[in-house]
């Protein structure tokens, strides 16, 4: 089964081809970060417009990279949600119609299922069950992954996503959009423990997160530091960034430990853009070493939004005989708990 996949749920246009025998054959991505930078955040209408311009050339480039033509595809998968509805619709309309015209099955895939299964793209994939921490600008959640379609959400954010907290805090510190990575590199020059920011919800049972209070605490501290009106010196800024990052890393690490204990899983998979944060990686790795937990990361390009993960998830479900009718599917909200294990269809032999 060879599957073409299209992902347009936010501000990346991505296309990939996955083969159940050969593995990942090709993947391409166009990032719109520069397009939205001037607005300080993703503008949904501009994102949708850009997907229209970029999608077909990207499909063509992916086919070329894989060295195959249209006739060598067996199915099409596309991100049907959750995400920006206008952006999702671009990929969904092209993907579903393309499959219709080629006479091959199509399937709308859950974006987060893609993220949860992304580590399965690696040469040495983790064994089920594992705990997945998904931390990005759009999501912060802990899930137990027991197999395809078997996801139990253990906790998620009640307000801002972890990456969102990074970006918003960076903005408050005057760093350019998207500020998360800039804030992280500023933090590396900071001194630990200069400021005492809250560890949100760490004192409470459960595995939910909350980051908006932490962001507010940083803003309040910045305001106090700047009371004289003079701009902050570089070291002070780095110290604030360092203490902020430390609060996020400690919170995420502690919740991961709780989740592993609660589920009895011995493998932790970390995905999402914040998963690339060096301080977080180091802390989780040392936590894993102490407790005999394998900590795994998909390669960096599959931590953030990509179509390879959609191709993988779609391929597994198409293989199990699942496919959509002629509807073009796109939904802004789609609870991942509502996903089901695909029922393998059996052909009757009488």
């Amino acid at each position: 089964m060879r599957v073409l996949a299209i992902e347009t749920s936010c501000d990346e246009t991505a296309v990939a081809i996955y083969d159940s025998e050969l593995g990942l054959m090709a993947h391409q991505l166009h990032s719109q970060v520069a397009l939205h930078a001037v607005f300080g955040g993703v503008v949904p209408e501009l994102a949708s417009r850009d997907h229209v311009r970029k999608l077909l050339p990207l499909i063509e480039a992916t086919l070329k990279q894989a060295g195959i033509d249209h006739a060598q595809l067996d199915g099409v998968a596309y991100t049907a949600g959750p995400g920006l509805i206008g952006a999702l619709l671009v990929g969904a309309a092209v993907a579903r119609s393309y499959a219709f015209a080629r006479g091959i099955p199509a399937l709308g895939v859950h974006h987060l299922e893609g993220h949860l299964l992304a580590p399965m793209l690696e040469a040495d994939p983790p064994r089920y069950p594992f705990v997945a921490l998904l931390v990005s600008g759009g999501h912060t959640l802990l899930a137990k992954v027991a197999g395809l379609g078997q996801y139990q959400i253990l906790g998620s954010t009640l307000d801002d996503a972890a990456g969102e907290a990074f970006d918003k805090t960076a903005k408050a510190m005057g760093l350019p959009y998207p500020g998360g990575p800039a804030l992280a590199s500023l933090a590396e020059r900071g001194r630990l423990g200069r400021y005492d920011f809250p560890r949100p919800m760490l004192d409470r049972p459960g595995l939910d997160f909350s980051f908006s209070g932490l962001k507010t605490a940083v803003v309040v501290t910045l305001r106090q530091l700047q009371q004289g009106g003079a701009p902050l010196d570089e070291q002070t800024r780095a110290d604030v960034a360092c203490s902020f990052q430390e609060a996020v890393v400690e919170t995420l690490t502690a919740k991961c430990m709780r989740a592993l204990k609660q589920t009895g899983a011995r493998t932790l998979v970390v995905a999402g853009g914040v998963g690339a944060n060096r301080a977080l990686r180091a802390r989780l790795l040392s936590m894993g070493e102490q407790r005999g937990i394998a900590v795994r990361y998909p390669r960096p390009e599959f931590c953030t939004d990509n179509a390879a993960m959609i191709a993988y998830a779609g391929c597994q479900r198409l293989l199990a005989g699942q496919q959509d009718d002629l509807q073009i599917r796109a939904v802004a909200r789609w609870p991942i708990d509502s996903l089901q294990i695909p029922q393998v269809t059996t052909v009757s032999s009488n």
Binding site: L89, A93, S97
Partner: peptide, 19 residues
């Protein structure tokens, strides 16, 4: 409607590209 126009071009592109 922006979204409506994009559904039309998306369907048309998907079909024409495949064919």
């Amino acid at each position: 409607a922006f979204t409506g126009v994009r559904i039309a071009i998306g369907v048309a592109q998907g079909l024409a590209y495949a064919l």
